[in-house]
């Protein structure tokens, strides 16, 4: 697995981004990083969720139901961050024809869809006891549902063509078009009146959340972020091998013919 005799050796050492495009090098580096990343993700996620469940105080009006926040908020952040990562990969793929970016984009969207589904489900579970409704069609909830459908659309589109290159191209265009949804999600609670409350944590101003609740949330969010990265890297590694298998079989079929 260390070297890649299967792939044709690249000519002159390519400059700029394509330095990271060599799948053999990607497998080597990611193989070294992944165990540490996974371990850190596991420890931080369990620590954050455990602290949220047992150490953090209840809320003065929501009671213990506020603890759902430690799952809901990190998954909501990752739903958006994951889409940013998908858009960056799509840009690399469309403009620079980066071959690893194609594979990574195809592997990010199912994971992003999963975390968005987690965000929607935990939000629903939180909304029923607090607001009194599982779901409302306000601007925040609706725009996150649109994000979920964008992810699903990308998952389907990338796999819809016989020629994978065309799928990657179409998926990248869809992903970049969908970027307009990200500011809508972020600012929906400020631009329109919604049932969903505005953000507690922003770049400016003191967080409107007690510190005893803030640190478990930060730890859980960091853990979930590392978990998301580890999952995407692991899936991309598998995809690199699968592409190599596909290439080998095709080459063999050609040789036989």
């Amino acid at each position: 697995m260390q070297t890649s005799p299967v792939l044709p050796a690249r000519g002159a050492p390519a400059r700029s981004l394509h330095r990271f495009a060599n799948p053999g090098r990607f497998l080597r580096i990611s193989g070294r990083v992944l165990p540490f990343l996974s371990a850190a993700a596991l420890v931080l996620t369990l620590a954050g969720l455990g602290a949220g469940l047992f150490l953090a105080p209840a809320d003065w009006q929501q009671g213990d139901a506020v603890r759902i926040m430690y799952v809901h908020v990190p998954s909501a952040w990752l739903a958006s961050f994951g889409y940013v990562a998908l858009a960056v990969c799509s840009l690399l793929s469309l403009v620079w024809r980066h071959p690893l970016a194609d594979l990574a984009a195809a592997e990010i969207s199912p994971v992003g869809a999963g975390f968005t589904a987690l965000c929607l489900a935990t939000g629903s579970i939180w909304g029923k006891p607090m607001w009194g409704a599982w779901w409302v069609w306000d601007a925040r909830l609706t725009s996150v549902l649109v994000l979920f459908f964008l992810y699903l659309g990308h998952v389907a589109l990338v796999r819809a063509f016989d020629d994978p290159q065309r799928g990657y191209r179409a998926g990248a265009i869809l992903a970049l078009v969908g970027v307009v949804n990200l500011p809508i999600i972020k600012f929906s609670v400020d631009w329109w009146n919604t049932l969903h409350q505005p953000a507690s944590i922003g770049l400016t101003g003191s967080p409107t959340m007690h510190f005893d609740m803030l640190w478990p949330l930060a730890v859980a969010a960091l853990g979930y972020t590392l978990a998301f990265m580890a999952i995407v890297i692991a899936r991309t590694r598998a995809a690199v091998l699968e592409r190599r298998i596909h290439g080998l079989l095709m080459a063999r079929a050609e040789a036989v013919r």
Binding site: L53, A65, R67, V71, S75, A121, T122, I125, K128, P129
Partner: peptide, 10 residues
Amino acid sequence: FIVSAYALGI
């Protein structure tokens, strides 16, 4: 509600 949210989250 809390248990089901955490179960999904894991």
